[in-house]
Amino acid sequence: MKPVPFNYFAPTSVEEALDKLAELGYDGKILAGGQSLVPAMNFRMARPGALVDLNNIPELAYIKPTSEGGLAIGTMTRDSKVEHDPKVIEMFPLLGEVMPNIAHAQIRNRGTFGGSIAHADPAGQLPAISIALDANLFIQSKSKERWVKATDFFTGPFMTVLDPDDMLVEIVLPPHLPHTGSSYQQVSRQRGGYAQAAVASVVTLDDQNRCKEARVVLISVGDTPILSARAKEILVGQKPTAEAFKEVAQAIAANEIDPATDIHATADYRRHLVEVLVERSLTIAFDRAKKGV
């Protein structure tokens, strides 16, 4: 369990990092927190020719308000920083629920917000959360820069729209509308373990207590995080009711997910879990939306 030989670069500015990535092309790989990449390298499953280490670029780690009233999070912000930032938790209670579920405290001390999104593990929480919170992702390379919606970012398991010379630089979370509530429900075998299934729901009510927006994202039951279309269809414009939540849960479990069987769980069990968790998360999220939490 030792990695194959690789080159290592430690740029001290974004510009220098982008130059290096452009120069290395497919040979280069960004090292952020290293909590997924380094084990994969030790297993020799990942064999990058060169690492471009972003840990010496302090300007990539920050949490700051945006002019629209949201938050901008620098790609190298440690998960534990996000977890313990009162402003983040106040504005996005969903992150308050999710962050403690990302592996263990030691891992969150190293793991980064941007790294987790760019890694695009279908069992990872932050890719799904970026979709649930409708994040905008700022991507830069030596030759171009662009904004991509989180919903358009993930293309497959561990695959994204990022080109080899691209860097995910910043994640912008737009502010919640009034009467928005959220809930995160996860079942994993153990505390800090991979989600066998998880659901993040962010819902908004209008003035008549009808559903205005419903973003229900499923984790660990497909190639990428899945934003449910059926939830939106069934709920938007309607009064949220237990019957509707059940209908959504059944529709999602039956049609929108593709869970796998592995040594820990059957696909049937995962499907069943999704149904249970969707119902639970919608119940709580709407309740919170009503209370204005």
């Binding site: 079942v187 075998r189 820990h264 769980a265 059957t266 049937d268 069990y269 069943h272």
Partner: peptide
């Protein structure tokens, strides 16, 4: 046992 296995028994 694991939760999935308990689910199978009940199914």
């Amino acid at each position: 046992l694991n939760p999935s296995r308990i689910f199978e028994y009940l199914q």
